[in-house]
Nucleic acid binder design. Structure first.
Lengths: 142, 142
DNA sequence: TATTGTTATACTCTATAACTATA
DNA sequence: TATAGTTATAGAGTATAACAATA
């Protein structure tokens, strides 16, 4: 017996994915606003931290951001003195966090943790251990 | 013992949600392309079908589309003769499917079903019954 | 030849403010 | 006074094509 939904979309996992994702994104962006960051900024900072010296193109591949769109993105973070570019060879730029970037990331990570906790708190306790496995499975190249 | 991920983001449900959602959306839009539809079009057609006579504003509230953005959206579907507007009172417009809309929706629904099956097929069988409950729980107003 | 960073550009989606006419 | 539809507009986010410099 499933409850009858108000709309014919609530039984579609794709629709639920989209709505849950956009709601979560909006929530996270709201929490990050005081820090002057957006969710993508934090993803980038976290990636650079865990892979110091990652290349601009590499980062784009991991985060699924087009090379062309990375330019303005990286430039913005650099202009705020959150990251720094170091020439690796004639064409590649290694990305690193600045001290200010590390400090801001520290605060951002707390915000992300709060956000994660808020997300998981919506899920009944018995389903909570399934959240990461389910989402990980759903995310697989298409 | 969790496996060590390549990036520090894969343990964040919010990040997984976003990536899974955008991958799924892209997949669905690809499947719908031969029909000349996008995912939002199908959502709208399905909603109108299940609530014949729904108002433009009501539909926007259900689908989380701004009133202002509904105008061009509805106009496009109407210009393709997929939906029809009927004046309810001096200001409200009831939306209904045309015969062509119903026929196209029939085909779209098959595509959506294939897409749903493809999505679920990625999830290990034992987790599959958790997909809708988990996603439904994660989607709750923010 | 393939890759990196870059510019330019365009398209989709989304958000806001303001107007009108109706309820 | 609140709501429905509308217009105009701006901002994200994303996608593609092309180019120069380098590997």
């Amino acid at each position: 017996m499933t409850a009858k939904p108000e709309d014919p979309l609530s039984h579609l996992s794709g629709y639920l994915l989209r709505r849950a994702s956009s709601a979560a994104l909006a929530g996270l962006n709201g929490r990050l606003e005081p820090l002057g960051l957006r969710h993508a900024d934090v993803a980038m900072l976290m990636l650079i931290e865990s892979r110091a010296g990652v290349t601009q193109s590499e980062a784009g591949r991991v985060l699924d951001i087009q090379r062309a769109n990375m330019v303005a993105f990286v430039a913005r973070l650099e202009s705020r003195d959150l990251i720094r570019r170091r020439q690796v060879d004639g064409r590649s730029q290694a990305l690193e966090l600045t001290a200010a970037g590390r400090m801001l990331l520290k605060r951002a990570r707390r915000v992300v943790s709060e956000h994660e906790a808020a997300l998981l708190s919506k899920v009944p306790e018995r389903l909570r251990p399934m959240v990461l496995p389910v989402l990980t499975a759903l995310w697989q190249g298409g």
